[in-house]
Each structure stands twice: as C-alpha cells, then as structure tokens.
Nucleic acid binder design. Sequence first.
DNA 1: ATTCCAGAAAATCTATAAATTTTTGTTGCT
DNA 2: AGCAACAAAAATTTATAGATTTTCTGGAAT
Lengths: 239, 239
Amino acid sequence: MELTVAPPLPAPSTQASHVYDRLREDLLSGRLAPSRKLQMRFLTETYQTGQTPLREALNRLTADGLVEVREQRGFYVKDVSRAELAELTKTRCWVEALALRESMAASTPAWEEQVVLAQHRLSRVPRSLSATAFEDNPEWEKLHRIYHRALIGQCGSQSLIAFCGQLADQLYRYRRLSISKAFPSRHVGDEHAAITEAVLSGDSDLAVKRLTAHYQRTADVILQDETIFPELRREPARS
Amino acid sequence: MELTVAPPLPAPSTQASHVYDRLREDLLSGRLAPSRKLQMRFLTETYQTGQTPLREALNRLTADGLVEVREQRGFYVKDVSRAELAELTKTRCWVEALALRESMAASTPAWEEQVVLAQHRLSRVPRSLSATAFEDNPEWEKLHRIYHRALIGQCGSQSLIAFCGQLADQLYRYRRLSISKAFPSRHVGDEHAAITEAVLSGDSDLAVKRLTAHYQRTADVILQDETIFPELRREPARS
DNA sequence: ATTCCAGAAAATCTATAAATTTTTGTTGCT
DNA sequence: AGCAACAAAAATTTATAGATTTTCTGGAAT
C-alpha cells in the first residue's frame, strides 16, 4: 500500500495568474516605467496571451496599487511622486508599528523562533550580487520580505497583514526604481539585528522605534534620488 | 469672449461600473447569500450583461473582500463567520483609532466643521424607515458612512482611509445580514454625539475610547444573532 | 505667417459570442 | 465495494464586433 498525499491544490494555474506574476515583476522592477500607458496590443504581443486574462491581471494589480485604471481610456502604470512616497512611508510606519506592538503583545515562543530564523537566513545572503556595483539579489529580497512579514505575523489580523503587504509592494517599487547609491554606506543587516534584539527583549517601544527608523531612513535616501525624481536636478539642496 | 470650464471628466460610465454597483448592493444587502456560488450564466441573465464587465466587477469585489475567487472553479460570495467578524472588528478598532488620533493631531477648523456638519445631518434622519419594525434607511446609512469617513479624513493618508473603507464595507454586510433586534434599545445617535464632543474637546484618548466602544458594541450584538450564525441555535448561552 | 477650430481617419477600449480546457458527476467494470 | 472511464457542466480563453477616444489634416480667422 502506498501513502500518497491527497492533492491539496493540484496546480492553481490559470493564464491570468501567470500574466499577473510576470506583469507584477515587470512593474516592480521598473521595466514598465511609471505613468506609461499599458496598451492592449502591446501587452498581448509582449506576454503572448489574450485580452481576458490580461484584463484580469490588470484589475488585480490595480487593487494592489501598482496600476491605475481610467474609465474608458485604459490602464496606466501608477505614477510615482515624492509626495506619495512620503505618504506611503508614513502610513507603513504607523500601521506596522501597530502590527508589531500587537504581535509582541501576543508573543509566543514559536513566533519568536520564526523571527530569529528569518533574520538569520537573511543575514547569510549577500545584499548585492556584485561586490563592486549594486546588483539586486532576488534571494535577499525574498528573505527580506519574509523577515518583515514575520515581525507582524503574530498580530492576529489577516487583513492588517495583507494591507502591510500592499504597502510593502508599493514601496518596494520605489526602491527598485531608485539606483540606491547609498547602498554600501548603510548596514541594513545591523538594523535588522537591532530590531530582532528589541523584539526578543520585549521592549516594544524600542522595537517600534527601530523599525520605523529603518523605513524612514530608506525613504529619505530615495527622496533625494535624481534618477527617479528629475525635478531634483536643479537646485539640489537649497535652504 | 466666453469663459467655459474645460470639460474635466465627461462621463466615465462603463458597463462594468454599473454591474459593480449593483452586485455590491446585492452582496451587502444579503440578497446574494454568503458562500453562494456565482455562476456566470446566472449572473449574465440576472444583470443582463456580458461576461467581460462581470469579470471586471467580480475582480474588484474580490479586492474589496466581498467575493472570493478559487482558481478555475469560479467566484463565490465571501462566507461569514464569527471568527472573521471578531477579527474585522478588532482590526477596524485598531486602525481607526490610529487614523482618528492622527486626524486630531492634524486638526484644523475646517475639519472640525466637517465633523460637526456630518454628525448634525446624520442626527436629523431616522435610523429606521418604520417606527415599529426595523427597516433599513438608505439615507441614514449613507450619512452614517460620511460621518465615520469624516472622523478619519484628516489623518493625511489616502491609503489608510481606503483601507478603513474596505473594513467598513465588510462589516456593513454583517450588519445587514443580522436582523438587529437590538435596534430600539441602542441610542447610536447619542454615541455619535459623544464621539463628536470628545473630538472637539481635543481629548484623543476619550474620542478613541468612545469610537472603539461604538464598534465593539455593534459587533457584540451581531455575534449573538442566530439568524446569521445558526451554530448558536443550540446552547444559546452556556458558561 | 501662425494659431485655432472642425471634421474625418485611425487607434483603442468595451462588450458579446463562440471555442477550448478543466472540473465534476455518473455509470460500468473488476 | 473500489476504481476507471465516460459524459455533462462550468470556467477560462480566444476571437469578433461595436463604441469611444485620440490623432491628424485642412481651412479659416487673427
């Protein structure tokens, strides 16, 4: 007799999901530039699929805040602005502070272990694929995401976690769009370690302070990046 | 020479938006019962429209948390449960507390006037269309929504406000599904007045306390409603 | 000569219908 | 009784037709 695991979810693969994943990646990476018009013809040719799955994917991405839809005049890549970056960061700090406090209030050994494990794994992977120039390491990004997800994972609210995920996605796009010249100067690994330490010590005020500072510092760097905000070109830093 | 206002946005009306509105109303009212399967054939016949606008509407409603989609096996009306009701309420209390505090911290005379005005208008409309039995008054619901929206409107985060709106929608459906026997016993008007008073006095702790109590009380009533949670039928209140 | 407006053509989005693929339910066989 | 193959139903996708918006060209007025 053979014990085969009952197929829990065979293979939830629809064309729409595939296009969604690919589009999402291209949006986050910046290959699809902000405020660019997403024409059906271009999309069907690029992604080799029909209109229906594309519309489905675009609608989901609109809900994620990565795509904008104007009635009867098509889909557009969501534009970026310094104001939106500031607002998203502010909101993320507020909401994740809330979620982290609630997680710590409902702390369990299993949860603390998850946080420790996620941070350890993250620390073992290089931030950049290249030692000289910055080159995005997908593995690091994945683990980074898991770590921050773990921090708020004990808060007890699926909808709150999902909202944090949306904010994280939108801000991640800003990070990718920015060249991040400040890459070598920061020690994000130390920042994560400091957050983890505060979480384990049970000092929620300190943990929240470090977490929000972490986010704010990232935003401050991007806010000064000329490559994403050309309006900074002239008068770089006037008082 | 004639000064004509440039046409701002002619009339953005698509079939998809219409179906979205109608479906939304039917979902919130309970005419489409929880966990019911939404078959394309039924929907096209009922709403007299094609599949494309319907899929678009259903996708938006999925993002709103009113519809659930299972890959390759169709759309379903989101199921209800006591656990979800409790979690949604908890989340709403957390997030709106946050938003209210930030609104009060950024208070302006104009905003306070908006709150006062919204509360006044709400107070002038009857909660129920019938004096004897409870009959939902759409006008009251609309003004109620505007009032709660006004409370958090000064927080300075569009995304946070939108998130609160989603939570409000999902919880509104629970309210409509429940018969609300406790209708005459509560004085929601007084509760709103008390919240407004606390907001105007600048006492954010008190305002938050009253607001969250307001939401919690509503949830507690619905949590005991047998008509929506049949599992309560036996052993109504065991200790 | 330049600018502004009007009309027509092109492009593009929205919607309906048909075809393909997957899932589900049933019947027959081992 | 259990399993497999078959048939029906339903979802997803492709293709086609209909509307709307945008763009381009030409002419008139400043």
